Simulated assay, not measured.
Amino acid sequence: MVSTKCTRSVKKILLRLFAILILIQFIQPVRNHGAQVVLNDISNVIAVPDNIRGILKKACYDCHSEETVYPWYANIQPLNWFLNNHIQKGKSELNFSEFRMYSTRKQQNKLSAIENSFNDNSMPLSSYTIVHRRSVLSSEEKALLRNWIQSSKDSLIRKNF
């Protein structure tokens, strides 16, 4: 008798949880899509060669721009909420789509921070690279980024003198 009551209670709880899971699928955050390169994009401030843009897109842009490419699991709640929160935090730290809005000093600091983050392997995040294996930077890509960052910082200095 106790066993039957317990089984019914568990079934009711599971049914309610399933209903909640279904209902939350209708609560979707706004997607982070900018279909075009915006006026404030980094490429409108400093030269970004195609090979560098490719590296940035594969390793950085999903969380640090208005150009997120969402994986299939972004259609499932609460995973999408987690992703959206992660993207918002990433863009608050650095947003390549708003790079022009930063002061020159901040632009230089952000470029240095980018270099530091891939040098110490804090970016891209390991939780991101587990799922997005293509975002892992090779030593050649890091060298290309280092050179580009240095020349970009130098060009920012020249622009202001």
Rank of each mutant, 00 (worst) to 15 (best):
L21W: 09
L21K: 04
G54Y: 00
K58S: 14
R53A: 15
A59D: 04
K58Q: 15
H64V: 07
I24L: 10
G34R: 06
C60P: 02
D50I: 06
L56P: 00
R53D: 15
D41A: 08
Q36V: 14
F26R: 05
Q25P: 02
D50Y: 04
V37C: 05
A74R: 03
A47T: 14
N51L: 05
V30K: 09
R31H: 07
V48Q: 02
Y73P: 03
H33I: 14
V30N: 07
L23D: 04
P49A: 08
Q25V: 07
R53P: 00
R53C: 01
T68C: 01
I22K: 04
Q25I: 06
L21E: 08
C63R: 02
P49F: 03
Y70S: 08
Y61M: 14
W72Q: 13
A47R: 11
V37D: 07
Y61V: 02
G34D: 10
E67S: 12
K58H: 13
P71A: 12
Q25K: 05
L23N: 04
R31S: 09
H33L: 11
I42A: 08
G54W: 00
A59Q: 02
V30C: 04
N51S: 15
T68I: 00
L21N: 12
P29C: 06
V48R: 03
P71I: 09
D41V: 03
A74D: 15
A59W: 00
V30W: 05
N44S: 08
D50L: 09
L56D: 01
Y61E: 13
N40Y: 09
N40G: 10
P29D: 12
Y70E: 08
F26Y: 13
I27Y: 13
V48H: 02
I52W: 01
C63S: 10
V69K: 15
L23S: 11
I22V: 15
P29V: 05
A47Q: 14
W72V: 14
N44F: 05
C63V: 07
Q36K: 10
V37L: 12
V38W: 07
C63Y: 02
A74H: 14
A59P: 05
T68Q: 01
I24S: 03
P29R: 07
